[in-house]
Design a protein around this nucleic acid. Structure first.
Length: 786
RNA sequence: GCCCGAGUGGCGGAACUGGUAUACGCGCACGACUUAAAAUCGUGUCUCGCAAGGGAUGUGGGUUCGAUUCCCACCUCGGGCACCA
């Protein structure tokens, strides 16, 4: 047998697969469909590092197994290519982002192909392709037309020196990443998408999908549904009133003051009035809070700060008491109504604040009963909650932490928002026939001095005639955030060339929903939620055939550099898969990435660790010499059946690391025997094939087959050969293992006890004393308590 | 700070629904082969103890006949916190 030559072998099979279009998905197949999806990468200039392939390989194993099980599998890939790093690179070098993207995607494609993944490359998509973003823009227009896209003022990070808006990521310790100037907050008109209108469904419909529990929980917490009440507090001697939201309206008798967020519109109102006695102090507090981040503001450990609006008092509608009104930044503007009634006795933050400013504290709850609450005292919370809210003229209300989605970016490298501003007609959507609104060439990719996107200075692009009245008009120059293109890409894979619709409705019906979507833990809230939102909207307008886009969602962990740090070019600790594949081969690489640790947890790359999988691959290669027509011995045969069962189950549950170790145990057993029956070996090759497709194809061919191993059927295991007549029953004394008896698994307790007594090593334990208690777990364990 | 995870040999990790802790792999040690080395193969490898036996799954408690697994408190690390992708 010739030497195992991974290069020769992997090139050979990758070429054959491509020529035969083995992984091209047939829309017309009558087999049951299976849509496997991984998050498409952002093609950075650094190229692929060994962390990228982990999900691709994991899903590839699942996709290959599903094909072997007779499914018609769709397993596509593409590029999520709009975004900051490419734009920043363009600003630095002057090379156009489109060109940079082209180079990067070419490199990524080459690298991914080296891994022997079974992507259907004929469906490759790119979010920066006008043919693609035409439909991203089209979706935006539908959102706009349905009242889900609106313009409003929102706060952005602003660098006063660079005169440009900054992403949070570009703000380092409150300073501009580029020039170190202190970053300010600025209000700016922005396009916003009303995702909160979908909050209830996004929350409730989680019950209908198969996401891992921690993913569901994190989504739920992010959406943050909270049932409470809105209650109006009148301002003494004025028409004005403040509406607060509280999740605990039953504590209203304990509300001893009100707090407004610094951004609350009433704060500005009140400051205009002569009644406020401490305007300077309030104003300086407002200034200070502008410089504080939200994380600092909401921190429980941070000392609460605030300032009273001196000169006004609110009236507690339950007690009719006059209570002070404060401005404090621990109250956030976008949650509830941006104003709260403070109940220091029963809320930790209110309590801290009240202590600091020596405000009265009044207990109104004792266990589950109300106290000090006039007629309501003595009643349980549940009983009187709604009645109480009624009495004070409030109304029950469900609120969400989820906020609307700020959709504008003042950047170049994103989808132009397809809107036209006409002096006469106002905001006019670009007519659908004029889509896509293509990104024009610009000389300078840097935002303008006024903070507009670089598109704003291209007058021949900006100035346009109004499609409604034909008068002078201007294009919207904001672009979309990177999230836009990735919020619907799973639909486009289904019909990537379609020019009449984002995808053919029949095809969508055939393929949706995605059966299994794997992605990074870091996308659990934003991307996952945004894409669920877009799909729900598209479902509502009859475009997507399903209410939920992803039937199942799992996540993978990072691969860290050997030093335990995140891999990055700047740290200089990047491991390039090209080198690893070159030295060890794609099959070994795949095996190692799956073997190195639990798929959903972060794990460090080890350059030595890959030797184990490589030795395994060579071992299997050599074992082909033992293959003949003789019968495989009983022990090996039984282990093979167990392995088939376990590997199948482990793939389904993404326990790839234990699947590989199970394959290794069988490989070790094959080493011990001198003969392996060919049919048995072939069944082994099929379950190995998803992990090591090249090696398996080659050995399959050597077994005399002329068709691909992936045209075979996933083998069924024979359960009868797995069950052993005898099993080891553990004998414990006081919960510690002291012996072992080999007996039939359905033995009775008495029989096992007798057998245990017969063991020589038991004499010293069981000597004369009578056991106090005996616990028997049938077929597994006998615990004797003495 | 808040939300979601994780912590087991020298290292990566395994242990099904509470039932033999350390599977599999790396490394290391010794041996075989070799003039030698590499590769390969074999044996051993949590720890204390001559042994009987004891101790170990981040720390401290608890529940249980029995806890890596369940509960409480704490420590450390990773992810997210809405304009990174």
């Amino acid at each position: 047998m010739d030497q195992y030559d991974h290069k020769k072998l992997e090139e050979k099979w990758q070429k054959i697969w491509e020529e035969k279009q083995l992984y091209k998905t047939d829309d017309n197949s009558s087999n049951p469909k299976f849509y496997a999806l991984v998050e498409f990468p952002y093609p950075s200039g650094d190229g692929l590092h060994v962390g990228h392939p982990r999900p691709y390989i994991g899903m590839d194993i699942i996709a290959r197994k599903k094909r072997l099980e007779g499914f018609n599998v769709l397993y596509p890939i593409g590029w999520d290519a709009f975004g900051l790093p490419t734009e920043n690179y363009a600003i630095k070098t002057g090379i156009s982002p489109a060109e940079v993207t082209k180079n990067n995607t070419d490199n990524f494609r080459r690298q991914i192909k080296l891994l022997g993944t079974s992507f259907d490359w004929s469906r490759e998509i790119n979010t920066t392709d006008p043919k693609y973003y035409k439909w991203t823009q089209w979706i935006f227009l539908q959102l706009y037309k349905h009242g889900l896209g609106y313009k409003a003022k929102a706060i952005i990070n602003w660098c006063p020196k660079d005169k440009t808006g900054l992403a949070n990521e570009e703000v380092i310790n409150g300073k501009c990443e580029r020039c170190g100037t202190a970053v300010e907050k600025r209000e700016k008109e922005q396009w916003i998408l009303a995702i909160t209108k979908y909050a209830e469904r996004l929350d409730k419909d989680l019950d209908t999908v198969d996401y891992s529990p921690q993913i569901k929980l994190q989504q739920k917490n992010w959406i943050g549904r909270s049932e409470g009440a809105e209650i109006k507090f009148n301002i003494e001697g004025e028409e004005a009133s403040i509406i607060v939201f509280t999740s605990r309206p039953e504590t209203i008798y304990g509300a001893t003051y009100l707090v407004l967020s610094p951004e609350h519109f009433f704060v500005e109102e009140f400051l205009k009035r002569e009644t406020i006695e401490n305007k300077d102090k309030v104003n300086s507090y407002l200034q200070k809070s502008k410089a504080t981040t939200e994380i600092e503001r909401t921190s429980l450990s941070k000392e609460k700060t605030g300032v009273e609006l001196k000169g006004i008092k609110a009236i507690n509608p339950a007690t009719k008491e006059r209570i002070p009104v404060f401005v404090a930044d621990y109250v956030l503007p976008h949650y509830g109504t941006g104003a709260i009634m403070a109940v220091p006795a029963h809320d930790e933050r209110d309590g801290q604040f009240a202590k600091k400013y020596t405000l009265p504290t009044k207990e109104v709850i004792d266990g589950s009963k109300l106290i000090n609450s006039e007629n309501f005292s003595g009643h349980s919370i549940q009983e009187v909650k709604e009645e109480l809210v009624d009495l004070v003229g409030g109304k029950m209300k469900t609120t969400y932490k989820l906020r609307d989605w700020i959709f504008s970016r003042q950047r170049y490298w994103g989808e132009p928002i397809p809107i036209i501003h006409c002096a006469k007609c106002g905001t006019v959507p670009v007519p659908e026939k004029d889509l896509p609104v293509e990104l024009p060439e610009v000389e300078n990719y840097h935002p303008t001095d006024s903070g507009e996107s670089p598109l704003a200075v291209i007058s021949e692009w900006v100035n346009i005639t109004c499609p409604k009245c034909g008068g002078e008009a201007k294009r919207e120059t904001d672009t979309m955030p990177n999230w836009a293109g990735s919020s619907w890409y799973f639909l486009r894979y289904i019909d990537p060339e379609n020019t009449n619709a984002l995808a053919d409705p029949e095809k969508l019906k055939k393929w949706m929903p995605v059966d299994w979507y794997n992605g990074g833990m870091e996308h659990t809230t934003l991307h996952l939620l945004y894409s669920r939102f877009w799909n729900k909207f598209l479902f509502d307008i009859g475009v997507s055939p399903v209410n939920e886009p992803y039937q199942k969602r799992t996540s993978h962990g990072f691969i860290l550099a050997p030093d335990g740090e995140k891999m990055s070019k700047s740290r200089g600790n990047v491991i390039n898969p090209d080198d690893v594949v070159n030295t060890f081969g794609a099959d070994t690489f795949r095996l190692y990435e799956m073997f190195m640790g639990p798929f959903d947890q972060a794990v460090k790359w080890s350059t030595d660790g890959i030797l184990g999988p490589r030795r395994f691959v060579e071992k299997i290669w050599k074992q082909f010499e033992k293959v003949n027509t003789k019968t495989t011995d009983k022990e090996t045969k039984s282990l093979l059946e167990k392995t088939i069962k376990k590997v199948g189950e482990d793939i389904e549950s993404m326990h790839f690391n234990t699947a590989v170790s199970t394959l290794m145990i069988l490989g070790n057993q094959f080493d011990k025997v001198s003969e392996i029956n060919q049919l048995d070996f072939e069944r082994f090759l099929i379950i190995l094939a998803p992990f090591c497709p090249h090696l398996s194809e080659e050995l399959w061919e050597k077994c005399g087959h002329s068709t691909s191993i992936f045209a075979e059927k996933w083998p069924a295991h024979n359960p009868q050969l797995i069950t052993e007549e005898e099993s080891n029953i553990v004998i414990q004394i006081n919960g510690k293992m002291r012996g072992l008896v080999k007996m039939s698994a359905d033995s009775e307790q008495e029989a096992v006890f007798l057998a245990a007594k017969g063991l020589p090593e038991m004499a010293k334990w069981l000597g004369k004393t009578e056991p106090k208690k005996i616990i028997y777990v049938p077929g597994r364990l006998l615990n004797i308590v003495i």
